[in-house]
């Protein structure tokens, strides 16, 4: 493999990794507070991508308006998801919560299938992202550079909220112990809603960039990225935001480089993440950066 191709694959891996990271953050934040795998989280990618498509094509909004609009709408759908599917089950057995999550995920996918149809749609990628530039002889699509940069911006904003503001402090408190947090006079339901809002918005941003990178939007496009992002969150140490980012990059790079170095393994690509998951759970269940898992019931 020449260095040129290697660098090309490296940038590819980094941009795929940033997408996993963005989605993984949402998983890890919700898991941190509710101890729930939000199965429907991946489907928010699809919701955001479709919203952006319709904002651009039907309402003819410019991309710099429609993308933030799609992100905001998806954030609201995240809150709605919590209200409808998870909030009534706060005191229910864990298995009910998970089943509700799976049901919500199938509902979103099939609603999209019924309303929009199963034929994949192209994504109206703005021209400025489609350009190809050459750095040191390596030809790179500018999108591949914008994706990690945007991820960095979102991540900074998120870290600022979580570690430097009062709501962030309440969020961190809720992830340690919901009951005690409630006793401290914090409106935990509002904090949970905010967590869903932030997680879903990041997933929406990830979904839009995903649709620009792989411009085939269909009702099930979020399933595999969602599962992989969850694995990235576990790999990095669930409940830990930085861990989710590290896990996302590790998984994205690992996947791309695996295919780059061993092209004959390309068809096993989707199994790779799950093998990693099993290995992590066998040898280091707390992930790369995780604290020991405590059972919170």
């Amino acid at each position: 493999m020449t260095t040129t191709i290697f660098f090309q694959q490296l940038t590819n891996g980094i941009s795929l990794g940033s997408l996993y990271a963005l989605v993984a953050i949402g998983y890890t934040m919700v898991y941190g507070i509710l101890r729930l795998i939000n199965f429907a989280h991946g489907d928010l990618l699809m919701v955001a991508a479709y919203t952006a498509i319709y904002a651009v094509t039907m309402f003819t909004l410019p991309w710099y308006l429609s993308f933030p609009l799609a992100i905001a709408l998806t954030g609201c759908i995240g809150i709605l998801l919590d209200r409808v599917a998870y909030k009534p089950l706060r005191d229910a057995p864990r298995i009910s919560l998970l089943i509700s999550a799976i049901g919500a995920s199938f509902l979103l996918e099939n609603l999209a299938l019924v309303i929009i149809g199963g034929v994949p749609k192209g994504f109206p990628r703005p021209d400025i992202f489609a350009k190809v530039i050459e750095i040191l002889g390596v030809r790179i699509q500018v999108l591949t550079i914008y994706i990690p940069l945007m991820t960095l911006v979102f991540l900074m904003a998120l870290l600022y909220i979580v570690y430097r503001t009062k709501v962030g402090k309440a969020m961190r408190a809720a992830s340690k112990d919901i009951e005690t947090t409630r006793l401290m006079g914090i409106n935990v339901d509002r904090i949970i809603a905010l967590t869903f809002l932030m997680g879903s918005s990041l997933a929406a941003a990830g979904g839009i960039m995903w649709a620009m990178k792989y411009p085939q939007v269909n009702p099930f496009m979020g399933v595999i990225p969602g599962l992989k992002a969850f694995i990235a969150a576990v790999l990095g140490g669930i409940g830990n935001i930085i861990g989710a980012v590290v896990g996302g990059f590790a998984l994205g790079l690992g996947e791309i480089l695996l295919v780059a170095f061993f092209p004959q393994l390309a068809q096993y690509r989707d199994a790779f993440a799950f093998v990693i998951l099993i290995l992590v759970l066998l040898f280091r269940p707390t992930g790369i950066m995780g604290e020991p898992i405590t059972d919170k019931t």
């Binding site: 864990r94 998970l98 599962l227 694995i231 099993i278």
Partner: peptide, 23 residues
Amino acid sequence: PVFRVRGDYLAIVTLGFGEVIRV
């Protein structure tokens, strides 16, 4: 690997196994 974990993790590992078999 499956019975080393419980709850959500068990769900995702078994789901992953299903995906691996499909692949």
